[in-house]
Design a protein around this nucleic acid. Sequence first.
DNA 1: GGTGTTTGCTAACGGCGTTCACTAAAGCGT
DNA 2: ACGCTTTAGTGAACGCCGTTAGCAAACACC
Lengths: 260, 260
Amino acid sequence: MTKSQLDRGIGRPTRRERVREATLSEIKGIARRHLVENGTSGVSLRAIAREMGMTAPGLYRYVSGIDSLLILITADMFTELADAVAEADASVPDEETDLRILTSLRAFRSWAIHHTAEFATMFGPRARLDPEADPAPALEAGRRFGATFYTLFDRLLSEERFPLPDGDRITPELARELRAFADSCGFSAPHIPVEAIMVLSSCWVRLYGVVCMEVFQHLDFVMHDMEPLFESELQNLLTGLGVRYRPPESSTSATIGTPS
Amino acid sequence: MTKSQLDRGIGRPTRRERVREATLSEIKGIARRHLVENGTSGVSLRAIAREMGMTAPGLYRYVSGIDSLLILITADMFTELADAVAEADASVPDEETDLRILTSLRAFRSWAIHHTAEFATMFGPRARLDPEADPAPALEAGRRFGATFYTLFDRLLSEERFPLPDGDRITPELARELRAFADSCGFSAPHIPVEAIMVLSSCWVRLYGVVCMEVFQHLDFVMHDMEPLFESELQNLLTGLGVRYRPPESSTSATIGTPS
DNA sequence: GGTGTTTGCTAACGGCGTTCACTAAAGCGT
DNA sequence: ACGCTTTAGTGAACGCCGTTAGCAAACACC
């Protein structure tokens, strides 16, 4: 029996696969650091190779180009964000749905403002991607991230917290698309009306908007601390969903000595 | 009397200044086209120079580098967007405030989805800008763009269409920032309470969010036609402001033959 | 016509992604 | 232990990029 057969029998990756995997994650790690330090355009194969003590063409054994590398680390970042949100969610007792949602949404913002470079490549404009490069990995990871919120919303829905709007503006075609999306989330989708998915989308859009605005710093000339605006949006949003809002325990913008 | 003195006396720019201005706008025009066709990273001084029949270093007589060129065309795009919105606004009778607002916001979305590359550089993440480059021109143009909506909101406010929220979450520091912003808009700011600016910011964030989501195509796997979601957001948003919503006259997503 | 300014060029440096031909090593079967 | 195959990595090269420095022609002005 050969060694590779032996390894495969146990299901353990061969030595070759292990060291290869290690090199790949070293590449991704350095790329990630360069992304954080210098932005998307600061990620270059040559610089990564230089730092690893190799030459740029060698990296093509691991990555099919700079674009696919960016897609790879984008996928990693999505799962990382999903983990961060899931962890925050798990820190709250299971039955406290309202607080779980509140905590999860705040965790999303917190991760975003502490990882602005990552957030920008994940949720910013889809630029610098050849139509050649296949964004499938990032899309898949993004879908799993979306599922995080989807689960919470699903519970909210089953508890009938809020009235569903009438789907006047939902055309048959749109309804079909919404259905397809719900199915792709891998849930027991049939019981979910399309109007609910519309509501979920609307909420997601609002959360996305306020966080993007903060991360991309497009309201800097109006306000520097965006937390009040975020909390205000959160309050409106959750109230519309029938979720009880509670102000954050300790806010950085809390002013000591001026109790209102 | 010299020629330049003669020209300056009339207030007309000298020939030199004219041809220089023409060259600069040719540069910006080609850069703009490359931006639309290939995205931000597709704008290069060398390519522009090649197309103009010059060499790249020659462009440095007109532009201090690629970053400042991008800032210049960003400023142009902001004024262009502001003009588009203002034009739509002007197409509605002056006294019909509600319809003017509705039309202006729809014009904003329309411009965005028809100029996705421009929108991405204007409202996307602030990347690819050295701390060296001075973004003042773009910021100034952006401010003038913001003033467009600010005027409409100002009228809405003076008509007392909606109740102001209580500013529990507005810290003194934030209030000062909001004041500074209102002043910078060049309006008769003193009569505007900070709570109102908070409301305006919230509305802007929601509009920004839904349009960004559409332009950046981050909901593509959920729905392809975002107009229903946009209109739904618009309806919620305007209702909260006490503005009467009216569905668009002819929607691309309108389904003929299935009247509801 | 002489003078200073403006304009654009060439040459050059360093950095980038990517391809290709090639070597050295590691793994594998016998 | 020995060939054979697969893999990892190198060096050279091509063409792109931004940017700087030095230089020559065109121009405006007196």
